[in-house]
C-alpha cells in the first residue's frame, strides 16, 4: 500500500467509524421517540444494536491497525474489516428501527460476524502454533501471546455479531410474559453473555497491560472495573431482583465511561512514545491500541440493555 493511499483510506475509515459510532450513540435515536409505546424487548434490542455497533467500530479500527501491522500478508486478513464495517452499518440501521420484527439483512450480517469471529479465533490459534515454523504447543508462550496474533481479539467480532443476532431474536420474541430467547430468559441470558464478554476482554487487557509491565497505575483500571461489572451482572442474572439494581447500573455506566477514557489514555500513550504523533506511522502500531478500550463501552452498553430487560420483567 502506498503511503498516501494508505493515509487516505485510514482517514476515511476513521471518519466513517466515528460517524457511525456517533450515529448509534446519538441520544435522539432514543429520546422522545422511545417511550412507553414501545415494547421493552425492542428498546433492549436497539440498545443491543448500539452495543454491537460500538464493539464493531472498535474491532474495525483495531483489526485495521493490527492487520496493517501484519502487512495483510494473508488475504483473509481483510475479512474482519469488511465484516466489522457491515456490522457497524447494520447496527446503525438497527438503532433507528423501532419495528418488533427481525431484519433479514441485519440478521445475516450479525450471524456472519459471529461466524467470522469464530473462524478468526481459529486462524489466530493456528498462526501462533506454527511460529516460527513448525506447529508446536510450545509456541503458546508469553512471547507469542504478547506479540503474535492476539488470541482473544477475533472474539470481539464474534461478540459484536452475537449481540446483534441476539437483538434480532429479541425483536422477534412475541411472548406476552417474560421474553425468552433460545428458550432462555432473555435478560438473564444476555447478562450472562455480557459478563462473559467483559471477563474475556478484561483478560485481554490484562495480558497486554502485563506486557506493558503495568508501568502506569491506571493500567489496573481495565482489569478491575470491568470484572466487577461482570460480577454484578452475573449476580443479577443468577438472582430474581425485586428492586432496581442501582449499583450494577452505575457500575456499568462507569465501565462505559472507562472505555472512552481508556481510548484517551491510549491516545496520550501514542504521544509519549519516541517521536510522538510526528512518528504516528510507527507509534499508532507499536504504541497502545487506541480503539481497543472502547470494547468495554460496547459491552457495558449491552449489560445495561440486559439490566433494562430484567428490571422490566422480573422473569426475563
Amino acid at each position: 500500500m502506498r503511503t498516501n493511499d494508505g493515509l487516505i483510506a485510514a482517514t476515511l475509515g476513521a471518519l466513517a467509524v466515528v460517524a457511525g459510532a456517533a450515529a448509534i450513540t446519538r441520544k435522539s435515536a432514543f429520546g422522545s421517540a422511545v417511550g412507553r409505546r414501545h415494547q421493552p424487548t425492542v428498546i433492549a434490542a436497539r440498545r443491543l444494536n448500539r452495543a454491537s455497533g460500538l464493539i464493531a467500530a472498535s474491532t474495525l479500527l483495531d483489526s485495521g491497525i493490527e492487520h496493517y501491522r501484519g502487512a495483510f500478508h494473508n488475504r483473509a486478513m481483510i475479512a474482519p474489516l469488511v465484516v466489522s464495517a457491515l456490522t457497524l452499518a447494520v447496527s446503525a440501521h438497527g438503532t433507528r428501527d423501532a419495528r418488533p420484527v427481525a431484519h433479514r439483512l441485519r440478521d445475516s450480517v450479525y450471524a456472519g460476524a459471529a461466524l467470522t469471529g469464530l473462524i478468526g479465533t481459529g486462524f489466530h490459534l493456528y498462526n501462533i502454533g506454527k511460529r516460527p515454523g513448525r506447529f508446536s504447543w510450545k509456541n503458546y508462550s508469553w512471547q507469542n501471546l504478547f506479540y503474535a496474533s492476539p488470541i482473544l481479539a477475533p472474539s470481539a467480532v464474534a461478540l459484536a455479531g452475537l449481540l446483534g443476532y441476539y437483538s434480532e431474536r429479541l425483536r422477534e420474541s412475541r411472548s406476552t410474559g417474560a421474553p425468552r430467547v433460545f428458550g432462555l430468559p432473555a435478560g438473564r441470558a444476555l447478562a450472562a453473555l455480557t459478563a462473559a464478554g467483559l471477563v474475556a476482554t478484561a483478560g485481554e487487557a490484562g495480558l497486554l497491560h502485563f506486557r506493558g509491565a503495568y508501568h502506569d497505575p491506571f493500567m489496573y483500571v481495565p482489569v478491575t472495573v470491568p470484572p466487577i461489572a461482570a460480577a454484578l451482572l452475573a449476580e443479577t442474572a443468577a438472582s430474581r431482583p425485586r428492586k432496581p439494581r442501582r449499583l450494577a447500573r452505575w457500575w456499568l455506566r462507569l465501565t462505559t465511561l472507562i472505555g472512552f477514557v481508556g481510548a484517551g489514555f491510549h491516545i496520550f500513550g501514542v504521544h509519549r512514545e519516541m517521536g510522538g504523533w510526528r512518528n504516528w506511522r510507527q507509534n499508532v502500531l507499536n504504541g497502545p491500541p487506541i480503539p481497543a478500550p472502547s470494547s468495554f463501552s460496547g459491552l457495558a452498553l449491552a449489560g445495561l440493555a440486559a439490566l433494562g430487560l430484567i428490571e422490566e420483567h422480573p422473569h426475563a
Binding site: 506486557r211 506493558g212 509491565a213 508501568h215 502506569d216 500513550g269 509519549r272 512514545e273 519516541m274 517521536g275 512518528n279 510507527q282 507499536n286
Partner: peptide
C-alpha cells in the same frame, strides 16, 4: 525498556 519509564521512551527497534 519495553514500556515507558518516567521520561524515557520505550525501544523503537
Amino acid at each position: 525498556i519495553s514500556a515507558p519509564r518516567g521520561r524515557a521512551h520505550p525501544c523503537v527497534y
